[in-house]
Simulated assay, not measured.
Amino acid sequence: MSNTLSLASMSNSDLAQVLFSSGLQASDHPSPEQVRTAIYACLCACDGDRSICAALVAQEAGDHPESYAARMRWALSTVSAAYAAAA
């Protein structure tokens, strides 16, 4: 899977779902490069199948609804910053 090719067609929302399902945490205060690396690694672990990440997000929302919204807000803002920095 090519990093540029696979991520180029993904929206910030798609990328945030992948980040959400990664092990990266807001408390890690990740750099933009760490965010991009975590997203790429997560996609590789799922063989590029974004639906696996989406399923993990849905499961987390069901299991921990109290923290879902805050984590998704973090993922969305972090992805926006990480990919703006790469542009």
Rank of each mutant, 00 (worst) to 15 (best):
D49W: 05
Y40Q: 07
S67M: 03
R50M: 12
D63K: 14
A38G: 04
A16L: 08
S27F: 08
M10T: 12
L76F: 01
A69W: 01
V35W: 11
Q59D: 13
R73A: 13
V79W: 00
G48D: 10
F20Y: 15
Q34C: 08
C53A: 11
S9A: 13
C42E: 15
N3K: 07
D14C: 05
T78M: 02
R50A: 14
A45K: 12
L7E: 14
S11R: 02
S2N: 13
M72A: 13
A8I: 13
S9C: 08
R71S: 03
A58R: 15
V79I: 10
A86K: 09
A81R: 09
H29L: 09
V18T: 07
C53Q: 04
M72K: 05
R36Q: 05
R50H: 03
E60T: 13
A45N: 11
E60Y: 12
V79Q: 01
W74K: 07
E66M: 02
T37F: 06
D14G: 03
A58D: 14
W74C: 06
G48I: 01
Q17I: 01
E33H: 06
S31G: 11
D28S: 14
P65F: 00
G62T: 02
R50Y: 02
S80K: 13
A86Y: 03
A61V: 01
S80A: 13
R73D: 12
M72H: 01
V57I: 12
A70H: 09
A54K: 06
P65Y: 02
R73E: 15
W74D: 00
L5I: 09
A41V: 10
A70V: 11
A41F: 07
R36S: 03
A70M: 11
S67N: 01
E33P: 00
P65A: 12
S31H: 06
C42P: 04
A58I: 04
M10Y: 03
P32Q: 08
E60P: 08
Y40K: 07
A58Q: 15
P65D: 08
C44R: 14
A85E: 13
R73Y: 02
Q25V: 07
S11T: 15
A87Y: 05
L24E: 07
T4Q: 13
F20R: 01
F20C: 04
A38N: 10
H29F: 14
T4W: 04
L7Y: 05
Q59G: 11
C53S: 15
A54W: 03
A38P: 00
S67Y: 07
S21E: 05
Q34R: 15
E60R: 15
M10D: 06
A70E: 10
M1D: 06
R50Q: 14
T37H: 14
P32S: 02
E60W: 05
Y83L: 06
L43T: 08
S80F: 00
M1T: 09
D47G: 13
A16I: 04
A61L: 08
D28I: 08
N12H: 07
L76H: 03
F20A: 10
A16D: 04
I39E: 05
V79N: 06
G23Q: 13
D28Q: 03
D49G: 00
C53Y: 06
A61G: 11
D63R: 15
V57W: 11
S2F: 00
S51H: 14
L7A: 03
A69E: 11
D49I: 02
H64E: 12
D14F: 01
S6C: 15
S2C: 09
F20K: 04
V35Q: 10
G62K: 07
R36K: 08
H64V: 05
N3T: 01
